[in-house]
Amino acid sequence: MSYFRKHYHEPGTAPGTLVQRSPATTSPLSMHLTDYTEEGVEELDLDAVQDCVRYLERGSKTWLQINGAVSPDTLRQLGDLFDLHDLALEDVLNAGQRPKIDSYENQLFVTAAFPMLNDGVLELVQISLFVGENYLICFCPLAQDPFDPIRKRIRQTNGRRFTSRGIDYLLYALLDYIVDSGFPVLESFGDDLEVLESELLAHPDRQTLAAIHRLKRELLLMRRILWPQREMIASAMRSEDHRIKPETLVYLRDCMDHSVQIIELLESFRDMATSMLDLYLSAISNRTNDTMRVLTIIATIFIPLTFIVGVYGMNFGNPDNPWAMPELYARYGYPLVWGAMIVITGGLVWYFRRRRWL
């Protein structure tokens, strides 16, 4: 996982320049349009940007969902058709933007981070949203549309909450879905923390340490993105832009509550991961201490035995010498020495067990 993923222009490039880069995804471009009023919903897949012109001339709400890798030419066509600002289009192409909300003359521009797990690895997908008077354009680099549950709510007969409200309610629904997507990711991280905790209490190894570092890194990356995302939602609530109606603020407040809950869970998991790293170091230190204690006990037991065999290994056994070792020629000298060593060994083991060193 790279620490720095943001695409950027070379220093000195004119602002608003759209430059084609090797995209992080090679997903083919697809455009899906959802046009709805209180009377009904119409959906179709577009082959060209110009196909949505006739829907903009109505009084309906139009949601244009663009998935996959978008080219600079397509962005320019959309910019000319919807009068999108050049700086905002540049931010769409340069992925890895900080979540934010910018107000331009003809539209609101919102960037958000969509958290997801790809084969167990955290991925933060940039979602770019343009909000006009009666349209919303959503750019998503994924091949598959992640917002199909929102579209299903619009199709439902009881989905009049969507059809009877302005386009700002659709903006809230998409932001709420993006924010709530953090809960399953954090749930997966919580499961990983439980597994790591069990491994730490059983048999921690280098793989456990690598898993802890990976989890800490992903939590740090998620925190770096979701903190400004909470600020972005707070900015939307404080915004005086006429495109965000007062009746939508109460829903944005609920979205803000979810964002705060995710941040609190994220901080708790980061603290747990840090404490697990300390627990791993303590477990390794305790294991080393146990090993050293066993080795010390073994060495202590063999010290007197080494002394005895060292003394009798000197072989001063001249029978005419009064200072010679009498045990060398005693009938039971050899078994007596063995018995003494066994008694000493047993006494030391009994003493160590009594002191609970064994």
Rank of each mutant, 00 (worst) to 15 (best):
M1S: 09
Y3R: 12
F4K: 07
P15G: 11
T17M: 12
L18S: 00
L18T: 00
P23I: 00
P23W: 00
T26D: 14
S27Q: 12
L33G: 04
T34G: 01
V41I: 14
E43A: 07
A48Q: 11
D51M: 03
C52Y: 07
L56P: 03
G59S: 13
K61G: 00
D73Q: 13
D80C: 11
D80Q: 14
L81A: 06
L84I: 04
A88D: 03
N94D: 10
P99F: 11
P99D: 14
I101E: 05
S103H: 09
Q107V: 06
Q107D: 03
T111D: 01
A112M: 04
A113K: 05
M116Q: 05
M116R: 04
D119N: 13
Q126E: 12
C138G: 06
P141V: 11
Q144M: 13
P146E: 11
D148V: 15
R155Q: 15
N158A: 10
G159I: 03
R160T: 12
T163C: 15
A173N: 02
I178E: 01
G182R: 02
E187F: 15
F189C: 07
G190R: 01
G190H: 11
G190K: 00
D191Q: 11
D191S: 13
D191I: 04
S198L: 15
D205C: 05
Q207L: 09
T208Y: 00
I212Y: 03
I212K: 01
I212H: 02
L220N: 08
M222R: 06
E231F: 11
S235T: 07
E240P: 01
R243E: 00
R243M: 05
P246G: 15
L249S: 05
V250W: 00
I262G: 00
R270S: 04
D271A: 15
T274G: 15
T274Q: 12
S275W: 02
S275C: 06
M276P: 00
L277M: 14
D278N: 13
A283C: 09
N286P: 02
R287C: 08
T291K: 14
M292C: 06
V294F: 02
T300I: 09
F302S: 05
F307R: 01
I308F: 07
M314L: 07
M314K: 04
F316T: 02
F316P: 02
F316Y: 06
N318P: 03
P322T: 12
A324C: 11
M325S: 11
P326K: 12
E327D: 08
R331P: 01
Y332H: 04
L336N: 08
G339T: 08
G347S: 14
L348R: 09
Y351W: 10
R354N: 12
R356S: 14
